[in-house]
């Protein structure tokens, strides 16, 4: 039972993190900035944050908590 609860809490936390990462005002921090390694920061940021959220979901849901 405890495992379920912990995995569940991690997923909810991931959801909340995602909500913050993918919205104003965090997004606005990357507006109109000089490219980093020739990639526009806002584009790079979203894809990196996106990948991180997916990784967190995978970690939370697939990991067997022993």
């Amino acid at each position: 039972m405890h495992r379920r609860v912990l995995a569940g809490d991690r997923l909810v936390a991931t959801f909340l993190i995602g909500c913050v990462l993918f919205n104003y005002p965090l997004l606005s921090l990357f507006d109109r900035r000089a490219p980093v390694y020739e990639i526009p920061p806002v584009y790079g940021y979203i894809f990196i944050a996106w990948a991180a959220v997916i990784a967190l979901i995978a970690w939370a849901i697939e990991r067997r908590i022993e």
Binding site: G8, L11, V12, T14, C19, Y43, I46, V53, I57, I61
Partner: peptide, 20 residues
């Protein structure tokens, strides 16, 4: 520009809650 992306970010967030 990247305005097409929210359509895919939304489902990603929902999948975090998919387990419930």
């Amino acid at each position: 520009g990247i305005g097409f992306l929210p359509i895919y970010l939304g489902p990603t967030l929902v999948m975090a809650l998919g387990w419930f």
